[in-house]
Amino acid sequence: MGVRKRQMAERLKEEKSKIAFAKLNNCPTSPRKMRLVADIIRGKKVEDALSILKFSSKEAAGRLEKLVLSAIANWQAKNEDSDVVEAGLIIKEIRVDGGTMLKRLRPAPQGRAHRIRKRSNHVTLVLGESKMLKDN
């Protein structure tokens, strides 16, 4: 391995140690409803996001709260010597994609049937350390 390639690999490894992610697959909530809650917490500090999710009345908030806690646990597994509060973790990225769709039939008048699509979603959450706290 060349010198530049090794330096690049070490730099990428260092950057990856500062982030942690968690995924939630096939969550039985429509992506549109999940994105409403995800947009609220995008870019916030982890403590603020958890308090917002805890007191939100949306069903998706409970699922996202559990996902944020999972991402924090993943970050702590990587950085055992660091503290979550001192690191100033923020939600760098939260992405809600469409998942599988269950197709059902609902009876309609005059012998017809309407198709019901029960949607699900995939959520990817990336936590990172805040740059502002490191500069100070």
Rank of each mutant, 00 (worst) to 15 (best):
L50Q: 10
K103E: 01
N25T: 07
H122F: 05
E93C: 10
K131D: 12
I91H: 04
L24I: 08
R117V: 14
N121G: 14
A20T: 05
N26C: 09
I94G: 06
R6I: 15
R63W: 09
L102W: 00
I19T: 14
L125R: 03
N25F: 03
L53A: 07
L102R: 02
W75K: 04
K78S: 11
M8T: 14
K78Q: 15
T100V: 05
A73M: 06
L125G: 11
M1V: 14
I91R: 04
R42S: 11
L24A: 15
L36V: 12
I40V: 15
G99W: 00
D81W: 02
R95C: 06
S120E: 06
A71R: 07
A113M: 12
F55M: 05
S17N: 12
E86V: 02
R4Y: 10
S30P: 02
K5A: 14
E10D: 14
A113T: 11
M34E: 00
R104C: 01
N74G: 13
R11L: 05
L69Y: 10
G88I: 02
V84M: 10
V37M: 13
I41N: 02
R119A: 06
R6Y: 06
R35N: 14
L53N: 09
R32L: 03
L67I: 06
I40A: 13
R106D: 11
V126W: 11
H122Y: 04
P28G: 01
A38N: 04
H114Q: 10
G111K: 04
A71Y: 06
A22V: 12
K58A: 09
R119I: 10
N121F: 01
T100K: 09
K18M: 04
K5W: 06
K33G: 05
L36R: 10
L125M: 15
A49G: 09
P107G: 13
